[in-house]
Computed example of a mutant assay.
Amino acid sequence: MQKLHTPSVVHALAAAVLLAASGFSMAQTDAAAKPAAKPAAKKQPVVNPSSRTNLKSAAKNVAAGIEAAEAALTPAELAIAERVHVGKLPCELGAAVDLTADPKAPGYFSVVGKNFKYRMFPVATSTGAIRLEDQKAGAVWLQLANKSMLMNQKLGIRLADECMSPAQLAVAEAIKLNPPASVLDAPKPAVAAAPAAAAPGTSDASAVAAQPASAAK
């Protein structure tokens, strides 16, 4: 014959079941309420401010070195630079060239016009003409007494011609009024005067008599 459970035992078992069920429900609620863990953020590389300062300083030093190298012109080249005509120079066919000296680099010039811009420095010549060059671009500026011209030797073309400053215009006008003698115009040799011929019908004796006494001796 089976033994009947006493009410206290039954109550204890029911309480245990209820407690277990309650704990399981609370565990599910906590799991649902807890947000999903976020993925770990990637660490950004840390840039040292001193590194940026060093890079800027190095860039400034390089630029200063380039300027110093540019400024290292010879006294002869600097003397040529002092004779360069600057300003906006009108040229033929309505063109113009703006030639400006660089205040930070003595002897260097900026030559600007339509569709071109060059940075030039003086180069000594055997003819005495003033010559500026941009060797990287192959551009040459030639300044004569009465005009200037700009050429691109790499392209083999003349970019501007008959460019004149006020001083060059004055020289050009003076040349028009008094053209210089050409090398082809050599002086003509002097021609010796021929002796006067005797008049028709006169003898040699009369011709001699007509000459001065000193010549007749």
Rank of each mutant, 00 (worst) to 15 (best):
A167V: 05
A37G: 06
A69I: 06
T29E: 04
V97R: 02
A21T: 12
S165G: 02
A15E: 11
M151D: 03
V111N: 01
A194H: 11
E70F: 09
T100N: 10
K3M: 07
P122Q: 08
N146G: 03
V47F: 10
A69Q: 13
N54W: 10
A31E: 12
Y108L: 01
S126L: 09
K136C: 06
I66N: 03
Y118Q: 09
A216F: 09
P49L: 10
S182W: 01
Q153K: 11
K147G: 02
A186I: 08
P90M: 02
L13Y: 12
A137F: 06
L89D: 02
Y118R: 04
R119H: 14
A198W: 10
P106W: 04
P90I: 00
P39S: 07
D204H: 12
N61Y: 00
P179F: 07
I157T: 14
N115F: 07
P187F: 08
M26I: 11
K147M: 06
I66R: 05
A190D: 12
P212A: 14
M26L: 14
I130G: 01
L18V: 09
A64I: 01
G201C: 07
A207N: 15
P189D: 05
K34N: 08
K3D: 09
L169E: 11
A216M: 13
F121S: 13
D102E: 10
A14E: 15
A59P: 00
N61W: 00
L13N: 13
Q2K: 11
N48Y: 03
L144T: 03
A27M: 10
A32D: 09
Y108S: 01
L89G: 01
A160K: 04
P166M: 05
G87V: 01
A190F: 07
I175P: 06
A59Q: 00
E92W: 02
P195T: 08
R83P: 00
A79P: 01
D98T: 02
A213H: 11
A40T: 07
V97H: 02
P106L: 04
Q2P: 11
P166K: 07
Q168I: 03
K154I: 06
K136G: 12
N48R: 08
T53W: 07
Q168L: 04
A14F: 12
L155K: 12
L132N: 03
A216Q: 15
K117N: 14
A32P: 01
P212S: 15
A41W: 01
A213Y: 10
S206T: 15
H11F: 15
I157G: 05
G113I: 02
S50M: 14
Q153L: 08
L142R: 07
L93E: 11
K104H: 12
Q28A: 11
T6H: 15
